[in-house]
Design a protein around this nucleic acid. Structure first.
Lengths: 188, 188
DNA sequence: TTTCATTTTGAACTTGGTGTTTTTTATTGA
DNA sequence: TCAATAAAAAACACCAAGTTCAAAATGAAA
């Protein structure tokens, strides 16, 4: 089970991708995503214009490329099929600067949307059994799952923007409680 | 109390502003906010380039200008200091197309952010009394208010994108219940 | 209806970012 | 060491943004 294919990536490629990603993150924190131009990125990363386009088609693709640790956070929300907010908030805490660039007010919300969708799917899976098969019930489940995911993301963003005032445990438990209360109640 | 100052606006100005606003709304529905250029807007509105810049500095300013009925909806959420989701959803229903352009997936989220903030303030006001004066309690109140507002907006967006499958009353009551459950629970 | 102020137009122009292409140079993996 | 590959550098066409100005159109008010 361990013998994964070792794909060797040219060191030059690794180097440029890393430089571009880091440049983007720092520029987002400085100016906000919308205001960052590709020109800015390649200047900061010290990379030629054509080199950028060799690897990416756009700013957005660079952002979504996933050569960052936050994706780990997203996958960590589910442990043995159970939602684990403790894991989620924990991983965010370990990548504070990155999380701020990706989720904060200056982020442009692209990653936040991405995260939100992942969380919505997991919430839907977890609470789906409480809802009937009818069209109305299923639609309500969708609305509630998406809305709850939006609530979770908002919690995350507040926390990150607030320099993580609360502890990981406090956040995780408050978040867990709130999500539960929404679905416990809607069960009726 | 009625003698409000009658400011007479040149009909030419009314006409161009209206044309620009309507052009923007239709273009958003066709392409999505981000992809709409000022060039598109003035072409569609049949307005000269310099005329646009006479009235607005940017696309965003045109969007936020508020020469549309949705702002009515926002103010209608509060009646005698009480949150009234029935009013909110009702006003949205009466401006379906506009609401879709302003809040839907193609909207660029600028108005949604705006709405969210308004709602968050009202929620905070309504439930503030349940929280102590301490820094932690106040921060939690803020987080919860913003997150709940995000939930409400998500509800709105789902509904609008879904061509308003549920009735206004159904949506309002579900929304009301969910918001209440969050704060009833967090009271503990 | 005439007058006068204001708005609109249209065109020209600068600026700045985008995305592509080509040639030359540097680095890598084997 | 060497063939393959990536990066750099520079030039290019393209498009939208935003500004400017003189001329034309239109509205308001008398």
């Amino acid at each position: 089970m361990k013998a994964e294919k070792e794909i060797i990536v040219d060191r030059r490629i690794q180097k440029t991708k890393k430089a571009l990603t880091e440049a983007l993150i720092h520029l987002i924190l400085e100016k906000s995503y919308e205001k960052v131009t590709i020109q800015d990125i390649i200047d900061r990363a010290n990379v030629g214009r054509s080199t950028f386009y060799m690897h990416y088609e756009s700013k957005e693709q660079l952002l979504l490329d996933g050569h960052n640790n936050l994706n780990v956070a997203m996958f960590s929300i589910e442990i043995n099929g159970e939602l684990s907010f403790k894991n989620l908030f924990g991983h965010i805490a370990q990548n504070q600067q990155l999380a701020k660039a990706m989720l904060g007010k200056k982020s442009g919300n692209i990653m936040a949307e991405f995260f939100k969708n992942s969380i919505a799917i997991k919430i839907k899976k977890k609470f789906g059994h409480q809802f009937g098969k009818g069209k109305k019930e299923q639609k309500l489940l969708s609305y509630l799952s998406e809305a709850t995911a939006a609530l979770v993301i908002s919690f995350l963003v507040s926390w990150v923007e607030d320099e993580m005032f609360f502890s990981t445990e406090e956040m995780a438990s408050k978040c867990q409680d709130t999500v539960t209360s929404i679905f416990v109640y809607s069960k009726i």
